[in-house]
Design a protein around this nucleic acid. Structure first.
Lengths: 245, 245
DNA sequence: CGGGCGATTGACGTTCCTCAAGCCCCGTGG
DNA sequence: CCACGGGGCTTGAGGAACGTCAATCGCCCG
């Protein structure tokens, strides 16, 4: 996918109202517009290695990226999944302690870190929005901790699908006659890293959910959810909207 | 423990330079001083139930509190551990999706939520500090996710002790001739909820670490770490400072 | 002394991991 | 055209780690 010309105009940006710039007025947007630049990463490409200096921060315009930690012996845990409108990088810190990797083709809207930090001082709207987004990410991390610490393998898989379904639904597309369709941005291995499982267990549980007609597979990477409530019950969460009510 | 009179003066506050007010100048501090009030919770007392309205936000002055989620069938996961200077509550949200419980006697420095939110609009220093603290909490949550998702029971226990030791060391006290002393604010059950284990497994692994001379027990709740590096090795993390370098 | 709570320890069972074989799909090269 | 190879995925057999259930202990406090 190439970058369409109009994507350089913030007014037409698909994540205009969800990203870190959401609360900016048109003056502030102009300022951002002047210092932003786009970068594209191919699937599998590393956006930032753990320990490296982060020269820029930015928003995910399209695609998905993972944040993960690896232990010396190779055990790996994904600790963040960045989808469109999510923010990459941390103002006020030079290096990231995590690997950030594109799990599909990713388009970023970037700002060099230093100018962005200065701009934040002068533009409270950015800092406020970033605080809200960070608090949301913290909530997501906490939901994730419950998944990692207490759920069974089957519940973990169901929870992952439910989270992705919610995000796809929020971004508008993906429902058809009550059936929700999820295009998995993740390989089985990436799902395992997300959920604290092995890829074999992921595979087995997906097969089990298919056998029990909770999901329907269309190829390896497309999943149909005919009955969202049924999937929701498999997550082990409360029925009534659940965690973040 | 009763509240000493001088604790009502922000200038003498033990968490003055670490809490949400850390960056405030003396004018801003005066404003905060006028609307703050103290509350004390006994060990085991609930500070806020999941779903209840949070009428206030505030800082932990002394003691420890846990944030946790419970599933319908009783499975429980701690998703946050609040120690002195940590912030409780979320500006801009009326209810908390988590239970917040005092795990030891807790003293809070509180602000009613609405006035605090208004103050935040006018006082960028507060929002900036809160953003930094939230980003730190997010980092801690991510470290925790690695623990929950990928570490063995033994590594989990060692990691918990290492985290507590680091925090005790940062708050100054607790070292004596190279031996670090940790006063556990947590019961075995609370540790289990923290680490995604059962209390029996926690108990067995603590016994094992004791048997292997990584730790020395002084009663049930006080732990001595004669060799911090040895403990660090048991966590499974990189030796060189590790995750958040 | 008795009761209760927290903690420890043991025996046994379940879940998930490990190791291994083989499948499906697709692109490459003979 | 088909053989080949590789990556991603599936499936099976066996084993290790942790959970479950239960008995017991120590300590504090009434």
């Amino acid at each position: 996918m190439k970058l369409a010309a109009h994507e350089s105009d913030c007014g037409d940006c698909p994540i205009r109202h969800n990203a870190v710039c959401a609360r900016c007025d048109s003056d502030e947007l102009d300022t951002l517009e002047r210092i932003k630049f786009y970068r594209t990463f191919k699937s599998g490409e590393t956006i930032c290695w753990a320990g490296d200096e982060m020269s820029f921060v930015g928003s995910v315009v399209r695609g998905a990226a993972s944040i993960s930690q690896t232990m010396e012996d190779g055990r790996k845990q994904m600790v963040g999944l960045l989808l469109s409108s999510d923010f990459i990088g941390r103002p006020g810190r030079e290096t990231s302690p995590y690997d950030t990797v594109a799990v599909s083709e990713v388009v970023l809207c970037c700002f060099r870190r230093k100018p962005f930090e200065q701009l934040m001082q002068r533009t409270p709207h950015i800092g406020q929005r970033l605080l809200d987004m960070t608090l949301d990410e913290l909530d997501a991390a906490r939901e994730w901790m419950l998944i990692l610490g207490r759920k069974t393998a089957r519940e973990k898989i169901a929870s992952l699908f439910a989270i992705l379904a919610r995000r796809e639904a929020a971004m508008d597309l993906g429902t058809f006659e009550g059936t929700i369709i999820i295009d998995l941005p993740l390989t089985r291995e990436a799902m395992a890293d997300y959920l604290g499982l092995t890829l074999e267990t992921v595979s087995r549980q997906i097969s089990a959910l298919k056998r029990d007609k909770v999901i329907v597979l269309d190829g390896k990477r497309r999943i149909e959810v005919p009955d969202m409530e049924l999937l929701q019950r498999e997550t082990g969460d409360d029925i009534d909207g659940g965690v973040i009510a």
